[in-house]
Design a protein around this nucleic acid. Sequence first.
DNA 1: GTTTGCATGTAAACGGTTACATGATTGG
DNA 2: CCAATCATGTAACCGTTTACATGCAAAC
Lengths: 205, 205
Amino acid sequence: MVMNVRTLCLGILSLREATGYEIKKMVEKGVFSHFIDASFGSIYPALAQMLKEGLVRVRVEDDDSGRPPRKVYQITEQGRRALREALNTDPAPDKFKSEFLFQMLFMERIDPAHLAVIYDAYLEEQEAELRTLEEEAREMPAHPGARFVQDYGRAMLGTAISFLKEKRAEMMRAFAEVGGSGQRPDEEAPCCGEERKHPEEEERA
Amino acid sequence: MVMNVRTLCLGILSLREATGYEIKKMVEKGVFSHFIDASFGSIYPALAQMLKEGLVRVRVEDDDSGRPPRKVYQITEQGRRALREALNTDPAPDKFKSEFLFQMLFMERIDPAHLAVIYDAYLEEQEAELRTLEEEAREMPAHPGARFVQDYGRAMLGTAISFLKEKRAEMMRAFAEVGGSGQRPDEEAPCCGEERKHPEEEERA
DNA sequence: GTTTGCATGTAAACGGTTACATGATTGG
DNA sequence: CCAATCATGTAACCGTTTACATGCAAAC
């Protein structure tokens, strides 16, 4: 599937007309925010290009108030066709990038105090996102697609939060036992099952 | 946090020595694969650069068999410091990109038959990932960090699978009711709560 | 006999982010 | 008084992907 800022804008514009600024807002919180990214630097050029190509139309609202005129974009029939085409192909596999999980993977090398901080911050973040989602779902009855995605998000965030809460104590206990200060020595545990063929040449600090 | 291919390589090399090729394999399946991406085109240059900078060391194994010599990389003390530094900063928020969820958001615009196909394919994919993870966890007792991430992955995938199975019937039923063929008309439901200030100028195909 | 695995690397292209430029208005 | 909101847009930069180049050996 051709999933880029263009398609994203088309998708949003298929639900309602909007300015570039509004699209940005919708992307940074709300249903979209959980699985999509886009900044002004990509939205504005995308809209401009699609205008040239006839996938969108624009209506300029100039309230002479000094600030730039609102450019309200609308999808055209051609744009709808393009969206439909994109939607009716196979989706690429999900991409999930998590610095937090990367850090958890190497938790032994992190200062325990700092670990606790980032852990709790992450947990709070997930809880905040769940609240946002729940609020959003409460105040407006969404169409089936949005319903589905909201429910999915709620299920996933709920699981993440439960997991994090459950494991927190266990994790911190493990660290308290090992040592109150600093990091643990490197290279204490092999990980990936693959036997090292060259145990010689081990480095000494 | 500075989470890029460099840091990723350092992380892996802090657990065991490896070639660029091996790093690629570890990244495309296994614990890392769930929240990280990297291709040859980024791994090889990253290793070369870090070699220049002294963050890694290399041992060349030339079995003259025609194929390029194995370059086994090892992390240096300097590299460990760099990794530790990266690890001890705040993580950037997760990034989750899902074309599937985007498609679900606009499910009304997708051909029901195709929708069923991509839905089932996605479900199967999640199940396959869970199996991989479970297998991996069974055959090797991981260090605490890897344990944590595996458990997290299992919890999340489990929830996703249950959700998808649960909702499948309900979803398909809804579509069967509406109409057996083709897509539904566009613009049937407003979504995002924001009132449209300009209900005029509605387009007619 | 074709595909897969092993194994390295480069260069161009891509998609996107960040920072900048501009400026009035409203709220803390 | 400063920050945020509204509102557009450009240009430089960045990390990464994709495609290419090379080639043997083993498995299917």
